[in-house]
């Protein structure tokens, strides 16, 4: 069976370079400006006898799409549900990059974080304790320097591992928010078809954030009034 892997991350972090490194013969265009890749591109590689289908996605800052290219990424992650999501994080810009990581973790899928551009991070005076980061996030973190092909074997191994592992839990938010989420999850779980398609916890978070698409989804169900109580 083919393992489906998606490369996602903020714009200009090095996704396409990593794609080219992993997929033999791939020639995705690379450029130093946000928004270089505008279309999803698929390629294959083999690792330990297993076949992997890798998708290079356009960069995005969050999963609330504003441009056509970002929409491609959002749709892919939400609808196609890849087996493993590789979140490429620019180590020299971790603070903002981790924001997307948190959003991805809310989806409760198998995630591997690639801390790319470690060379740039170092020259900026950043020291990152990767293991500590991995344990705080609860997902594997691999250091890479894509342009020098550093860390690619480790990344492949981490992907292989993640594909076989149970899905990690989302991060726990402060208890006041968790209370709200829990309440909504209880209400949402009443609609079985809704929560089989998307994780209930994710739907709850999006409801709190008043995400347009999720609000529309809910309007089609009978849960509307119960949910409104939580917001009243």
């Amino acid at each position: 069976m083919t393992v489906r892997v998606a490369l996602i991350g903020n714009p200009n972090v090095g996704k396409s370079v990593i794609f080219n490194n992993l997929v033999p013969g791939a020639r995705q265009h690379v450029g130093n400006w946000p928004g270089k890749t505008v279309e999803k591109k698929t390629g294959k590689y083999r690792y330990k006898g297993e076949e992997y289908e890798l998708v290079d996605l356009p960069g995005c800052y969050s999963l609330t799409a504003r441009a056509v290219d970002e929409l491609v990424s959002r749709t892919y992650i939400l609808e196609e549900k890849p087996d493993v999501v590789v979140d490429i994080v620019d180590a020299s810009n971790v603070e903002r990059n981790l924001y997307l990581t948190l959003l991805l973790m809310e989806l409760e899928t198998n995630i591997v974080v690639a801390l790319n551009q470690m060379d740039v991070a170092k020259s900026k005076g950043y020291t990152i304790r990767t293991e500590a980061l991995a344990s705080r996030l609860g997902v594997p973190v691999v250091e890479t320097i894509a342009t020098q092909k550093v860390g690619m074997e480790k990344l492949k191994a981490a992907i292989e591992n993640a594909a076989k592992s149970p899905k990690p839990a989302s991060l726990t938010y402060p208890s006041d928010i968790e209370d709200l989420i829990e309440k909504l999850v209880t209400i949402l779980s009443a609609d079985a078809s809704l929560v089989t398609h998307h994780p209930a916890r994710w739907l709850a978070i999006k409801l709190i954030e008043r995400d347009k698409e999720v609000l529309e989804m809910i309007q089609e169900t009978t849960l509307d009034s119960k949910i409104e109580e939580v917001f009243a």
Binding site: V94, E95, L98, Y99, L102, L103, K124, G125, Y126, T127, I128, R129, T130, A132, L133, R136, L137, L171, Y173, P174, D176, I177, D179, L180, I205, I208, E209, R210
Partner: peptide, 29 residues
């Protein structure tokens, strides 16, 4: 819990959380 603008407040919470994580995992010289 989140005030009048839950969307922004939630984003703020996420960034706060990231701040907490990075306090442990990142040193800047």
């Amino acid at each position: 819990v989140l005030g009048d603008d839950p969307e922004i407040a939630f984003a703020e919470r996420r960034y706060k959380m990231i701040g907490g994580i990075l306090e442990e995992c990142l040193t800047k010289t």
